[in-house]
């Protein structure tokens, strides 16, 4: 399988180790913010079980979307439609979503919630993915949606640490979206604001 070949490529592995090394520093900061949620709530006498429950629901919706994104990138990676460099990008972005999942699961559990599981089946319009541009456009659409979803979630959190952490993920999704647009030959940043 092409994905396996790529993962076994020493150059790719070295690049990925370097990437993970760098992102680990960033992730730990986000992780601290996320995992600070429970302590923050405990310290906040106004935090009610309702507000924690609301926050867990938001996190679980985000987790569901992250699971779906991982599955979508897997479809793209296994499509045999991607050039090597684009495949590396897709695998890297999928890795980000896996990191999001890891931290969301931990946080939901810390808050006393039950993380939603990966669905047994995801339905994607695979019959429309005929070439690399189709795959990139499909991924870009999901990333754009993720940006909007996180943007809509940020102000809905009761806990500001969680809102900050969600904004951090939003930034990552926005970079994915811009990079995919660039790969499609489109203006990577078409406007001053996202919505």
């Amino acid at each position: 399988m092409q994905l396996i070949k790529l993962l076994n490529d020493p150059l790719f592995a070295a690049g990925r180790r370097a990437f993970i090394g760098k992102s680990g520093v960033l992730l730990s900061a986000t992780a601290v913010a996320l995992l600070a949620g429970r302590d923050g709530l405990a310290a906040d006498s106004k935090a009610s079980s309702t507000s924690v429950g609301d926050d867990v629901r938001i996190l679980n919706t985000a987790l569901g979307a992250e699971h779906q994104a991982i599955a979508a990138y897997q479809v793209g990676a296994e499509s045999n439609l991607l050039e090597k460099s684009v495949l590396a990008l897709a695998v890297q972005f999928q890795g980000h979503h896996k990191e999001h999942v890891e931290i969301l699961v931990k946080t939901i559990t810390q808050l006393g919630g039950k993380p939603v599981a990966v669905l047994q089946k995801y339905t994607f319009p695979t019959d429309k993915l005929k070439n690399q541009a189709d795959v990139l456009r499909f991924a870009a659409g999901l990333e754009q949606g993720a940006v909007s979803a996180y943007l809509g979630a940020v102000p809905a959190f009761h806990n500001r640490d969680l809102a900050k952490a969600a904004a951090s993920i939003l930034g990552d999704e926005a970079m994915h979206w811009a990079t995919l647009r660039q790969a499609l030959g489109e203006n990577p940043v078409p406007s001053a604001f996202v919505s």
């Binding site: 995801y122 339905t123 319009p125 990333e143 754009q144 949606g145 940006v147 909007s148 979803a149």
Partner: peptide, 15 residues
Amino acid sequence: YARCMACHSLTENRI
């Protein structure tokens, strides 16, 4: 509607 597409699609159930 493009903003909704992390979770929704016209033709498929997603999130």
